[in-house]
Design a protein around this nucleic acid. Sequence first.
DNA 1: ACCACCATCTGGCTCGGTCG
DNA 2: CGACCGAGCCAGATGGTGGT
Length: 364
Amino acid sequence: MSLPGPDHGNPDHAHMLANKWMNATKLAEMVKTQGLVYKKGKFSAIEEQQLRTAIEAFKAGRGLTNDQLQDIIFQKNEKGKDNAFWSEITSALALRPIIAVYHHVRRAFHPKKQQGKWMPEEDAVLKQAVADLGQQWEKVSEIVGRMSSDCRDRYRNHIANREVRVTGVWTKEEEEELTAIVTEMTIQQGKDFDNDVFWGKVSDRMGNRRGRQQCRIKWTDSLSKTVKNEGQKPRWSAQDAYILVHKVDSMNVRDDTEIDWKTLPDSDWNLWSAHSLQRRWLTMKRGIKGYEDMTHQEIMDILRVKKAHLPPASAARKRKVTSVANIDEPADPEPGDAGPSGTQEGASDGQDRDADGSTDDSDA
DNA sequence: ACCACCATCTGGCTCGGTCG
DNA sequence: CGACCGAGCCAGATGGTGGT
């Protein structure tokens, strides 16, 4: 079709993804038996754009009003009428199963999709509604006037266990307790403590004094690194920045929302979790003046020079960097200055930047 | 029994704010 | 700055229901 996608593999598969409502089991089976490939996880900015375009095209093609479109998405009209809709917009995406697009679009177009803070009155209404109805979030949603998932989140994260919940700095004892629980649930069972933790369970075992994401963030951002580094807390260095830029560069994506951060950590450089690397990336990006209005390519061009000491156009670098071993590390691991003087090409205008770009074009 | 379609429940992630 | 936390946002899995 219109997409010149790099490889949308088997056309049968594309058709299947756009037309068959497969559940997780079936999907997994297809992956196994037929080599089906599909995409999971957050929709990238590019996918969002493709979806918007496809929806607009559908709407224009049938001369629909916004209300009619809304009706199709939420199916307030009579059943089974015009349900080419989901298949049609899904096929604009090539690698997404129809069920994923369905959920995504329904969330995105939801009339109660309002953002914003919860007022104390809303909390009270929510609490009462749950007391009356139990955790029937669709019914609760009617009463509270927010999306059911938002009601659930609010309840789960802020109403439930409010009496025992602790916030603020973690004590030494809490940290040790969390470390013990996580290592017991993962390492001692041969699982991976970066990926295989059920945080709800962990929170339970902490007596709910800390919530799911409190535990998770504490672990992934802080404690896990200490565990990996034999009790020492590692510091982010210029070399780390250098490696990160190289890795992102080698992914050749059009936009950083297309990056699957899970693939970035590797065994030679495993102090940093996917999450912390993503945060680092954001921080670096924001260090660039005017980054909001720049494309991914432009941002990469700047970072390549500033952090990775590569020529800006990337033309030379096509090699795939899959592990740290493939990266020419900055020559001297001296703290304070990690400038890899060796990698510098004889770039014509080659202005020599210092290693951590402390004084250059970052904004005021 | 099967299929298209849908609601709801479970689990994970992003990102801005704040503080030292 | 970077470390850390809070609050909200998002996707996946599960388990229907009504029509054939």
